[in-house]
Amino acid sequence: MNNKVKAWLEDGTIDVFLGYKEVDHHPLPYCFTKERLDEVDDLLLSPARYSLEKIATHMTDEEPDIKIGMLARDCNSRALNVLYLWNQLNPDNVRTVNVNCCPSRLKEHGDCSYLEPETVGAYKRRVGVDNNLALKDVEAYDETERLDRWMYEFQKCIKCYGCRNICPVCFCKECSLEHDELVRTGPLLPDVPVFHMVRAVHMAGRCIDCGLCEAACPMDIPLRLLYQKVNQIVMDLFDYKTGTSVEQPPFSILGDTVTLEPKPIEPLKVINNE
């Protein structure tokens, strides 16, 4: 791996390489360059995950044509696919060294071992949503219970915007969550559940289920479950698997033919809680 990266840097395949290196006893993201080639020997696969692709987008903001190499776990690759699709990175300018993020249970679905939240306390288990639950268990709660549990979770929100900031596929120049008309500035708790719903809706066709948001949440809100639901609906409705479907983004009319003819509306499946 190290030799490959060195070779790429030397022959100009890439200008920089994003990987990890130990700094002050912490494994940190590190940008390797041709100028300091021997540092590549210190390249390591960090047990901690950072969104290297987000750093890459910041780099291309400065230098649009820079060629970037990076270590890519499965989640990084999925994020890259999404960023290519939404025109935020040019796939021609990105090279990856794919790493197997072992130990990984279901790598293909991104359900890797990093994504096993800590066991939650008894109180949260009683009144909130256990981060370790499977989506179907959460959906099994009855209507009022669902509402109570989710609102308990959302009300904890301290509006740190960490979920958005850490998100590898959040790239908007100005975030709707900062638009006063949608989410009022000032009040804490944020407009429940508008803040989280808006974010959930914007995750459609973007969320690659990396779990970084949940890991970054100081209040342990089970965001992954929420966005898993988003992904599931996107899959059901648009037949689109975010991060692995590399064709058109789901919210595009191109999937249907572009015409202005009124089309018969296909009956969609009945909403389960009606």
Binding site: I158, N165, C217
Partner: peptide
Amino acid sequence: LFEVINGKIVSTLPMKTHPVNEGKLCIKGW
């Protein structure tokens, strides 16, 4: 972690392995 590109701080990230915050930050830190 400060992300410094061409000498300019562009972003702040929580340090994942830091014993105090374990990868989390509040809005001020962010």
